Amino acid sequence: MSWLYLGIAVIFEIAVAISAGNAKGFTKIGWTIATLLSGAIATYFLSLALLTFDVGVGYAIWTSVAGVGIAILGALFFGQGLNWKKALGIALVIGGVVGLRLSGAA
């Protein structure tokens, strides 16, 4: 169940980044509310996942997977470039997450 909670937390963390990018320095009220709400939901589900995960491992997986998701969505939907250097970075992050998983974390 902790992996499900962590997955939900990742999805809402990605929503935080997308919302914050569109909030324009918190001048757009709808996007600001979406940022704050999705941040609260992401944190809530992360806290549930951390009942099982070691805090360092759970947090590292949460931020890493969300970062990869944001980078990929940015390239696919927001016209943000994805060159070989970024792709290599994403691959290294994924490798790190796999390594954490293989360490027996939760």
Rank of each mutant, 00 (worst) to 15 (best):
M1R: 09
S2R: 11
W3M: 03
I8H: 14
I8M: 14
A9P: 08
E13C: 04
I14S: 04
I14D: 07
V16P: 00
V16R: 03
S19E: 03
G25I: 02
T27C: 00
K28F: 06
I29T: 11
G30L: 13
W31I: 01
T32N: 02
A34F: 09
T35N: 11
T35D: 12
L36M: 15
S38T: 15
G39Y: 13
A42Y: 08
T43N: 12
F45Y: 15
F45N: 11
F45E: 11
S47G: 01
L48A: 07
L51M: 10
L51P: 00
T52R: 08
G58C: 06
I61H: 12
W62C: 05
W62K: 03
W62R: 05
W62G: 05
T63V: 15
G67L: 14
G67Y: 05
V68L: 02
I70A: 10
I72T: 03
G74T: 01
G74P: 00
F77M: 05
F77A: 07
F77S: 01
F78W: 13
G81W: 00
L82Q: 02
W84R: 13
W84N: 09
K85V: 10
A87N: 06
L88E: 06
G95L: 05
G95N: 06
L100W: 13
G104D: 12
G104N: 10
